[in-house]
Design a protein around this nucleic acid. Structure first.
Lengths: 223, 223
DNA sequence: GTCTATAGCTTGATAGAC
DNA sequence: GTCTATCAAGCTATAGAC
């Protein structure tokens, strides 16, 4: 077999490890961790039952691997955008808007780029965030918390008069609104009989940003 | 055995059915539907394995029963508060504030009144909302949707200039922010090392309302 | 790195006595 | 309405050949 053919085959065929991650990502998203068996995963992936234990050890480790794979990418993109904000050079409300954009836009970009893997991933971390179990894992915290601290630090600079508590709450509210939207839970679809869709991210996005922005601004006003 | 003694015993001992609902509510909240076995439930309830199938038929039916039991109460309380708003007699921003209060306060009241059952229930419906499966059940939709339509109708009266889409989005954002907060997912606790707590609802509540109010107001402003 | 085979256990649900 | 006993199927994980 000539070299070129070998290379072509490599490009086409994903490694078993990556394949398992993709399939697990999809099934965990649609049926949850406990609602997905390793058999479901290996059958859909066309591999044997033992492949998961060989590549990941346990089912739990596979789940963590799924979460971690794209987390590093996502967090890095958020930080790059956050650092690009010229806090001192612009108005506070503009800076706030850009901060929220730095937090949410990376999610939007991946969710709408056509890669079903990323779409599933966004829904997965959004769902997972509502369960206490997931956040109890230290590996996951070590990836998601440091960027979060950067956002909070930046929020404090933008709203110097706001109390520590208000800033902490503001971050959690931003997080909550964002993650709920990215679950794409079909509630909007059901209630409007398909007139509007929870999966229509590009259309929802501008409204989402205005909502979060207005919410945080109102939070820092003492009345 | 005299009548009075019988009555006393009835008051103390919950029916097996109610007991199973309470235990299931707690375990479904902490471990999810698929993470909870009927054995887990019956063992903690001190009943036999067959009791669940006798009283509810299937595990799935038990889950629906758990969701429905308090849903009717919650929805009715929301509607009572909503109807009490004097839309035409007050300013739009005040009316909006009262509308949000009508949506969230019933949750807060039950969540903080000391009944662990209600506390679990609030967390459960918040978690469940991020899964597509749950909303697919018609029984659940028939309870939660009609009150939601009432809120949307009222939102439109308060914000007559806002488009239908903006109002629909506004409702979803309110829903998302609220439900995320009521998951009490411990993220705030972890990030602030216990300085602030996601379970401290009474303290979070005023900020939550200001945030949602500011968000929706900003949404209806065209810039 | 992939395969078969299987251990050891848990699952939801039911049949039938009381 | 509650009990025991049990079924049939599913589960995660591993051992060992190739």
């Amino acid at each position: 077999m000539p070299k070129s053919e070998l290379k072509a085959k490599e490009t086409v065929k994903r490694s078993t490890r990556e394949l398992l991650l993709d399939v697990a990502e999809e099934l965990f998203t649609d049926h949850g961790f406990d609602g997905t068996s390793v058999r479901d995963i290996t059958e859909q992936a066309g591999t044997r039952l033992a492949s998961i234990n060989y590549h990941f050890g346990t089912k739990k480790s596979l789940f963590i691997a799924v979460i971690m794979r794209r987390a590093i990418v996502l967090c890095e993109e958020r930080l790059v955008m956050l650092r690009d904000i010229d806090i001192d050079g612009i108005e506070a409300s503009d800076a706030l808007y850009q901060l929220i954009d730095a937090f949410v836009l990376p999610l939007l970009k991946h969710s709408t780029k056509g890669d079903p893997g990323w779409k599933n991933y966004c829904r997965l971390i959004a769902q997972t965030s509502t369960y206490r179990q997931a956040y109890e894992d230290n590996t996951v915290r070590e990836v998601f918390d440091p960027p979060a601290y950067e956002f909070i630090k930046c929020l404090k600079k933008i709203m110097p008069k706001a109390s520590d508590q208000q800033v902490q709450y503001a971050f959690q509210f931003m997080l909550g609104t964002t993650l709920y939207v990215f679950t794409e839970n079909l509630r909007l679809d059901g209630m409007t009989e398909g007139k509007y869709r929870s999966g229509d991210m590009n259309n929802i996005y501008p409204s989402l940003l205005k909502y979060i922005c207005g919410g945080i601004l109102n939070l820092s006003i003492t009345t």
